[in-house]
Amino acid sequence: MALSDVREKPAARPEAARRLEQVKDKVAACIQCGTCSASCPNAEFMDMTPRRMWRALLAGRVETVFLSQTFILCASCYMCTLRCPRGLPLTWAMAGLKQAAFSLYPDRFRRSALFYRAFMDNIRQYGRVREMEMMTRYFLALKHPLVPLGYTSMGIRLMAKHKLHLRLPSAGPGRLAPLFDRAGRQEG
C-alpha cells in the first residue's frame, strides 16, 4: 500500500474521518508520560508502543498510526485506562482506531475486519452467536485454505466435548435485523 493512498483515504470517507477526530479528542490531553506503554501486556509484540502511537495520531501522522499493528494488538485489558494519570479512555480510543481502520483499509486489516463482520452478521441473523456457523462463514469469506487449519486442533477438542453444534443455517430477514436497521438509519 502506497503512503499517498493512506493520506488520501480519510478525506474520502467522511464517517471514518469523523471517527478519527473523535479518537483524537479522547486522547488530546495526553502528556506522553508512557504509563500506557509500561502497562500494556502486548507492548512487546507491537511495532510501536502505545505512547508513540498516540503522539503520532495527535501530530496528524495518520499514516504512521495505520501502518502500525499497535491498535490491532490491543486486548482490551483496560490497564492503561485504569492507570492513565490524565484519566483518558485509552482502551475505547483503541477501539475507535479499529473502527476507522476497518472502514478505511479493509484490505490491510482484512482478517480482523472479516472476523468482526462475520460476528455482527451472526448476531443480526440469530440474536445470539452460533460459534460454529460464525467461524465457517468467516473462513469462507477469507477464501484462504490455510487459515482454518490453524484452528483445526482447537475445533476437534471442542467437538469432542460436544461444544460445537452443527445447526442448519436459517434464511429469513434475521432475528435482530429490524434493530440493526433502525440503528443504521439513525447513524445515517
Binding site: 468482526y116 448476531i123 452467536v129 434493530l179 447513524e187
Partner: peptide, 23 residues
C-alpha cells in the same frame, strides 16, 4: 436475551455497541 455485542460491536459500530446490551 440476545448477544451483548462482545468486543466486536465496539470495533464496528459505536451506537450498536450500546444498543445491543441496552436491549
Amino acid at each position: 436475551w440476545t448477544c451483548c455485542g462482545a468486543t466486536a460491536a465496539r470495533c464496528v459500530d459505536e451506537l450498536l455497541s450500546v444498543v445491543l446490551p441496552a436491549r
